[in-house]
Simulated scan of single mutants.
Amino acid sequence: MNKFFLIVHILAAILCVGPITVAASMFPPIARRMLTAETPGAGGLDVLHRITRLYAWVSLAVPLFGFALAGSMHVMGEAWLISSIVLTLAAALVLALLVVPAQSAVLAVAGGTPEARSGVLSKAKLLSMTSGIFALLWLIVLVLMVVKPGHHRG
Rank of each mutant, 00 (worst) to 15 (best):
residue 127 L to Y: 05
residue 90 A to F: 11
residue 90 A to C: 13
residue 114 P to S: 15
residue 107 L to H: 00
residue 129 M to T: 15
residue 119 G to A: 09
residue 109 V to D: 01
residue 102 A to Q: 11
residue 72 S to M: 14
residue 91 A to E: 04
residue 101 P to K: 08
residue 120 V to R: 09
residue 129 M to V: 15
residue 77 G to P: 09
residue 132 G to K: 10
residue 76 M to G: 15
residue 111 G to L: 06
residue 135 A to C: 12
residue 133 I to L: 13
residue 101 P to N: 01
residue 114 P to H: 09
residue 136 L to N: 05
residue 134 F to Q: 05
residue 75 V to P: 11
residue 106 V to N: 07
residue 72 S to N: 13
residue 107 L to A: 06
residue 127 L to K: 14
residue 98 L to D: 08
residue 72 S to E: 15
residue 123 K to C: 06
residue 87 L to W: 13
residue 77 G to A: 14
residue 88 T to H: 08
residue 103 Q to R: 02
residue 115 E to H: 08
residue 100 V to Y: 04
residue 75 V to S: 13
residue 133 I to E: 09
residue 75 V to K: 10
residue 115 E to A: 15
residue 88 T to E: 10
residue 135 A to I: 09
residue 120 V to H: 05
residue 136 L to F: 10
residue 81 L to Q: 00
residue 100 V to W: 01
residue 96 A to Y: 08
residue 117 R to V: 00
residue 113 T to V: 10
residue 80 W to A: 03
residue 97 L to G: 13
residue 136 L to I: 07
residue 129 M to E: 02
residue 120 V to D: 06
residue 124 A to Q: 04
residue 131 S to G: 14
residue 130 T to G: 07
residue 99 V to E: 08
residue 90 A to S: 13
residue 84 S to D: 13
residue 132 G to F: 03
residue 109 V to P: 00
residue 120 V to E: 06
residue 100 V to E: 03
residue 115 E to V: 08
residue 86 V to S: 01
residue 97 L to P: 00
residue 99 V to D: 01
residue 97 L to D: 02
residue 93 L to Q: 07
residue 97 L to M: 10
residue 114 P to A: 12
residue 100 V to H: 04
residue 81 L to T: 07
residue 134 F to W: 04
residue 87 L to M: 11
residue 95 L to E: 02
residue 73 M to S: 15
residue 97 L to Y: 09
residue 90 A to N: 05
residue 118 S to Y: 01
residue 99 V to S: 08
residue 103 Q to S: 05
residue 136 L to Q: 00
residue 103 Q to E: 10
residue 115 E to L: 13
residue 108 A to F: 06
residue 128 S to R: 14
residue 130 T to S: 15
residue 97 L to Q: 09
residue 115 E to F: 03
residue 75 V to G: 12
residue 75 V to R: 14
residue 132 G to W: 07
residue 109 V to A: 01
residue 86 V to E: 04
residue 115 E to P: 03
residue 84 S to P: 05
residue 81 L to I: 07
residue 83 S to Y: 10
residue 88 T to M: 14
residue 87 L to D: 06
